[in-house]
Amino acid sequence: MPSGLVALLDDVAAIARLAAASVDDVAAASLKASSKAVGVVVDDAAVTPKYVSGLTPARELPIIWRIAKGSLRNKLLFLLPAALLFSAFLPWIITPILMLGGLYLAFEGAEKILGVLLGHDAHAEEAAVEGQTAEMVENTKVAGAVRTDLILSAEIMAIALSEVSDQPILTQAAALVAVSLLITAGVYGIVGLIVKMDDIGLHLAQRPGATPRAVGRGLVAAMPVVLGALAKIGTVAMLWVGGGILVHGLEEFHLTAIPHAAEALAAVFARLVSFAPGVGHWFGFAFASALVGLVAGGILALIVPRLLALFGRKPVAH
């Protein structure tokens, strides 16, 4: 029973399996994987735009490029060697590490929601950037995005690795490199397109012809709303991805009460959306995962600041 993110990555796992057939097949599998990146974009495209909110338009693409480079660095320099080593010598440790990452995502999402509900979120953000230069603010945003990407990338690498773990190590490495490049290009290419749609709209609004101008004005008017909505969806995405990783990990350890409850709720959604049961099942499981993430992350969000205060440290700004 996969988590929301794991379900979306089934196709990526299939591509990794194809890539493992031989090193020569990696190129062909990579081409096919380019059409499968949309599963990960559902999560990353929702999470990433919030990290460029509040920045000047000229800095949006450079920041996304920095995040994309950080994502590749996460995958190729850290996660790929670690995945191969763990697979060879400590295969049992992969699930606990992923669950710790899931807890971190759930903590970030729940902390954001608690900040809004308690009314100190905006003040906390203002305080976090007070006295900082524009470069320092950008660096903080990039660091936060790369930390979040590390968890999502770890999940991607783990799912891909699970499909090629019985192959020679060089074939495993080639498959993971192919998946890393394709997923990163797909995710951040689409994120870049999303955040620049208002500029595209402005360009269309200045072109001759009633139709291009109308479309352009519509894009310009809609994108602030869309980006604001994506920032909120990004917070929820952290909960459902983090909670989904936790649910999947519990099942791996045969602690099935919560996974069975999540699956039962997903089945209810599937029956309610009878014309598209697969979609209903996905949303049901995502909703159940978000609830798990909210509970687990909420507990951490209440405990961690007190522990940090106890040791005289300030929480890290996200």
Rank of each mutant, 00 (worst) to 15 (best):
L250P: 00
S153R: 04
L98Y: 06
D25C: 01
F283S: 06
I67M: 14
A174D: 04
M197T: 14
R207V: 05
E108L: 13
L161W: 00
A145P: 01
T256F: 04
L308S: 00
E138V: 07
L300N: 08
E125D: 15
A173F: 13
P315H: 11
A205Q: 05
T140C: 12
F285V: 05
G280M: 02
S162N: 15
A296K: 00
L76M: 12
M197V: 10
P277S: 05
L118T: 15
L98C: 09
L294F: 11
V179S: 12
A134V: 05
I151R: 01
V47M: 02
Q206W: 04
V215G: 06
S71N: 15
W282S: 03
I183M: 14
M238S: 08
V226Q: 07
G293C: 10
R73A: 15
A145F: 04
G101E: 07
L307T: 11
I194T: 11
A178W: 15
T184W: 10
S289G: 03
E130V: 01
A16P: 02
P168T: 00
M1Q: 06
H120K: 13
A37H: 02
G109D: 03
F269N: 10
I15D: 14
L79A: 14
S289C: 10
L182K: 01
L98P: 03
V41R: 08
L291N: 04
